[in-house]
Design a protein around this nucleic acid. Structure first.
Length: 424
RNA sequence: GGAGAAGUGGCAGAGUGGUCGAAUGCACUGGUCUUGAAAACCAGCGUACUGAAAGGUACCGGGGGUUCGAAUCCCUCCUUCUCCGCCA
């Protein structure tokens, strides 16, 4: 969430920034400021009453210590009036604070200067497009047709075992999947990321820490019996490693990654969007996360972008990079670049990665800080990105590398798959 | 799952109702001494909110309660350890 100081001091800039999201924040901000002021006033008031009570209590202690019981009991009466005042004020302060937090949780992150105002997908800026559209001498099949033809993925079996959106990878399909995971992890390692295998279920605090809660509650699977959520992305457990952490100095750059399955309810999705591997309830992903000094977060973002481009280059996929407009930007991000690969058979761009900088939006919730040169704590910047999400990469690989009787496997994967093509 | 014990500052470890934000040791930082280092000695050494500052407030696993007053008593949850049961 935004720092309250920032709201106090930069109201106009925040309004202008959020206008790019078409988010009219003016009335919320005004309410925040007025609640904040009332809250601080009442709190000061309350604290001075408590201070008075503490003082009297201490005196009572001294009197009792000296055996002056009667005098002590006499003073006790002074406190009764203060106590009533205290409990009333305490309720007011709590109420105001809850109200304040609730309001603050409604305010999304301020978009970066580079982010353009826009309504949705159509207003995203294309930054670059790399690679060529493959040519076929025949009508290319969709990946779900290929999966069936070569027995790589069994969607119906998934329906039988669980339900739609839970595909079963079989034989060489499974191995290809595993190869991609290994390839992504190995590239991450080359780029200095430390690998974690985190829990796939997280508690409520973790959900709040990275911002999935409260605004994306419906998107996550929830286990009521144990009060736990299935992770929608490894971002949640990975970033929460650093919840409530104060890094000891200002010289740090934390690079971590993890492969996990991801679970998303995707309520409301339907039709051709969910066909095949396009949108799943369970999918695999390698996620990279960085914790950075504010002055280094832009550099980190660029490194991440280059890292992802390199992955796509090595896989030989045609792709484009988009900078999301304000309207399409996620709640917690200040800037996001989406990577989309082109699927010939579907004539469609498929999102395979999303790299975001959150500035201090997550770290304020996480209470993730570092000690600066003056030994004061400051909030870190957090960033994350998919490197990469598997299903759509697999879809594009199958579709773009098909011949009439085989699938060619990109060279970089051979050492992981043990085969260079899949044949009928 | 059942029975028991325990959770205190970076670590170790006192404190079982009153001036305790918390003894002591170690670690760490600064200083004295020394050619330098070690040792010794002296001093400092948690976080957050609020305030111009002085100060105030909160925090002894989390939450709630009793009390004029809680690290200390009560309730509840979490975690760790020991024993039993079950088990990949």
């Amino acid at each position: 969430m935004l720092e309250i100081q920032r709201i106090r001091n930069n109201k106009e800039a925040i309004i202008a920034g959020l206008d790019k999201r078409n988010f009219n924040v003016q009335s919320i901000l005004e309410e925040v400021l007025s609640v904040d002021e009332k809250w601080r006033l009442k709190k000061t008031n309350l604290e001075s009453i408590i201070a008075e009570m503490n003082k009297i209590s201490r005196e009572i202690g001294i009197l009792f210590g000296q055996g002056k019981k009667e005098e002590g009991n006499k003073i006790k009466l002074q406190i009764t009036a203060l106590k009533t005042k205290e409990s009333v004020l305490k309720n007011e302060v709590n109420e105001l604070h809850n109200k304040l937090v609730k309001l603050m949780y409604q305010i999304p992150n301020i978009p970066d200067e580079l982010v353009k105002k826009g309504n949705g997908e159509l207003d995203n800026e294309k930054i670059e497009e790399i690679g060529k559209t493959p040519k076929f001498g025949f009508k290319p099949l969709s990946h779900w047709e290929i999966s069936e033809k070569f027995s790589l993925i069994d969607f119906e079996l998934g329906v039988k075992i669980t339900g739609s959106g839970f595909p079963v990878y079989v034989g060489q399909g499974a191995k290809l999947q595993r190869a991609l995971i290994n390839f992504f992890l190995e590239e991450g390692e080359k780029n200095g990321y430390i690998e974690y295998i985190p829990p796939l279920l997280v508690n409520e605090s973790s959900g709040y820490g990275t911002g999935q809660l409260p605004d994306k509650e419906g998107q996550m699977y929830y286990l009521e019996k144990d009060d736990l959520y299935l992770i929608p992305t490894a971002e949640v457990p990975l970033t929460n490693i650093y919840r409530n952490v104060i890094l000891p100095n200002d010289d740090f750059s934390i690079k971590i990654m993890g492969f996990t399955p991801c679970f998303r309810r995707e309520a409301g999705s339907y039709g051709k969007d969910v066909r095949g591997l396009n949108r799943l309830h369970q999918f695999d992903k390698v996620e990279i996360v960085r914790i950075e000094h504010p002055s280094n977060s832009d550099k980190a973002l660029n490194e991440m972008i280059n890292h992802i481009k390199e992955l796509l280059n090595q896989l030989g996929l045609q792709y484009r990079v988009l900078r999301l407009c304000g309207g399409d930007l996620g709640f917690t991000a200040s800037i996001t670049y989406d990577f989309e690969v082109y699927s010939v058979a579907q004539d469609k761009w498929l999102e395979v990665s999303s790299v975001s900088r959150f500035d201090t939006f997550q770290s304020t919730r996480l209470k993730l800080r570092f000690k600066n040169a003056d030994n004061k704590s400051e909030y870190c910047h957090t960033l994350n990105g998919s490197a990469l999400a598997l299903p759509r990469i697999l879809a594009a690989l199958l579709e773009n590398n098909q011949t009439t009787n085989s699938i060619k496997i990109p060279k970089v994967l051979h050492k992981f798959t043990g085969f260079s093509e899949i044949v009928l």
